[in-house]
Amino acid sequence: MLVKSQEDRPICKEDDISIVRSSVKRVVALLNFSLVNQTKIITAASELARNTLEHGKGGHALIQIIDDGTGRIGLRMIFEDTGPGIPDTDRALEDGFTTGNGMGLGLGGARRLMDEFQLESHAGSGTKVSITKWQERL
């Protein structure tokens, strides 16, 4: 796996969610994703950026263009915070599970919208969510 380029965006206040969305929007357009996939990726980024701010008490997002080694290009986004962490990650992925004021669709929803999803979290030591969408094969 090769990281071809990377942007690092802080998520410390509400306006940062929009900034992350705009950055992601620019990259997905650059990578020629279909319109539906562009929308899915921007939506997933928005869900996770909000999680980082609300539940993680702030953190940052890495937006990466990656190559899987065979020339296939993908977009990977890593959302990292140093907040309270998620004690039960399985439960956090269930639809409708929420500790905040949302609908509880953030994590599970983001997983459905993307090709790959990884969640690492331990109580007390923050959360790291990594999501990837690969370019459609022509």
Binding site: L35, V36, T39, T43, L113
Partner: peptide, 14 residues
């Protein structure tokens, strides 16, 4: 509503 949004929010579960 844009068609891509209709597809996305359905998958998201809204």
């Amino acid at each position: 509503m844009q068609p891509a949004i209709a597809i996305t929010i359905t998958e998201l579960g809204i």
